[in-house]
Computed example of a mutant assay.
Amino acid sequence: MHKHHLFWPFVVLGTLLLFNLIYSPDFFSIQMKEGHLYGSLIDILNFGSPLIIVSIGMTLVIATSGIDLSVGSIVAISGAIACLSISNGGERSPFSLMLAAVVLALVLAVVLGLWNGFLVAAVGMQPIIATLILMVAGRGIAQLITSGQIITISNNPYKYIGAGSLATLPFSIFIVVTVFLAASMFTRRTALGLFIESVGCKPVASRLAGIRSRTVLLAVYMFCGLCAGIAGLILSSNVSSADGNNAGLWYELDAILAVVIGGTSLNGGRFYLAGTLVGALIIQTLTTTIYMIGVPPEITLVVKALVVLIVCLIQSETFRLTLVARWRSRHYPAEREVKQHG
């Protein structure tokens, strides 16, 4: 019987949560303090918000048989330009400063996504090379914006984006819900999702069918840049500062892993936004678990990589069938002989 594509991601997520519950019995406890909800589950949703948003954009890029290695750099750039804008804003009201900073950062993020899309769609450059250029240069641009320093700001409206609360929950969770619903609506309620899958699966056939593949690619990379820009705003506003060197570092790898864990193939074609959401939660829960059990920082990435490798192997149907075949041949040798002589 064919299992639903979310079966194994949910199994892995449930296993991680169960381990945390056994290791720390109060892991699922949620408390109300000063009108805000607090707890490990709330923290996973809150701190995982930037990664979830970046992963949503990455899903659509991968669905077109592409990849975007520059999202981490765009995260750093958007946070840096927003904080710099507020820092140099003068005596204007905090809200107008925040609004101008957010608009400037998001427009710049979309332009950077457009640049990636231009290199891929118009120039014909391989996506991994096109986005690698901005991955390297973008990190340098972020450090140029901050002059190699950490820009610290004090702006309550801006801080609310990443550290504020709405209806007792972190505001960043509502941003995630908005982005997820918008992406789902445009890709599942319109023909855009079909166009994206067609370009990723059969680019030549989709072009012959009249689909403007270049426009689709431009739109997808621009949306991915927008998602990275939103994530940069959340990260920088949460700590009221911008660090061009470390903000969004390795986010591109976590986002790609979240998409793959969620069931979307790197070969392009059919994609699963809900699977990506679960995959990103697995990555964030794993990170929380590693820190909670006290894994030394120097081997944290190794442990994380091993767990992700195991998760991907569990999801691989070929790997599972091979294990089952070997187990049956070992425990039922007579069955193997029948197949050989039959």
Rank of each mutant, 00 (worst) to 15 (best):
F180Y: 15
P127Q: 01
Q126D: 10
S198P: 10
Q143K: 09
A163G: 14
I161P: 02
K159Q: 13
Y160T: 02
S172G: 04
T146P: 08
P170Y: 05
I150R: 05
G200A: 05
V204C: 02
L192D: 10
L194F: 15
T168H: 11
G138P: 08
S184D: 05
G164H: 12
S198N: 12
G200V: 03
A183W: 07
R188D: 08
A167F: 15
S198M: 11
L132H: 05
G138Q: 07
L169H: 03
A130F: 07
P157Y: 02
P157R: 07
A163P: 09
F186I: 15
V136R: 03
G140H: 08
N155V: 06
I173C: 07
F171I: 00
K202W: 15
T178F: 14
I175E: 01
L134S: 12
F186T: 14
G162M: 03
R189S: 08
I133V: 14
A167Y: 15
R188H: 13
T131S: 00
Y158A: 09
G162V: 03
L181V: 14
I145C: 00
L166N: 08
M185Q: 06
T146Q: 02
G148M: 05
I129T: 08
L132A: 01
L181Q: 04
F180P: 05
T190A: 01
T190L: 04
G162F: 04
F180A: 13
Y158N: 02
M185D: 06
I161G: 00
M185C: 12
Q143C: 03
P157L: 06
P170K: 09
F195G: 00
A183E: 06
I173T: 10
C201Q: 13
T178W: 06
I150F: 13
Y158I: 01
V204T: 09
Q149A: 10
G193K: 06
I173L: 12
L181A: 12
G164N: 11
P127F: 07
I129P: 05
S172P: 08
I196W: 09
T146F: 14
V204D: 13
P170I: 01
A205W: 12
V176T: 02
Q149N: 11
L144R: 01
N156G: 04
V136C: 00
K159L: 13
G138Y: 07
M135Y: 13
I150P: 03
V199F: 12
I161M: 01
I153G: 02
A167V: 14
I128A: 09
T168K: 07
V177N: 02
S198T: 02
C201P: 05
V176G: 03
E197R: 13
I141D: 02
N155P: 11
K202C: 14
S147W: 15
L144Y: 10
A182L: 15
F174N: 05
R189L: 09
I133A: 06
L181D: 10
A183Q: 05
V204A: 12
F171A: 10
A137E: 11
I150K: 08
N155G: 08
L144V: 06
M135W: 14
L166H: 09
A130M: 00
V179L: 12
S172H: 06
I151K: 00
G193N: 08
L166S: 12
T187K: 06
G148W: 11
Q149I: 13
I175M: 01
V177P: 06
A142Y: 10
S184E: 13
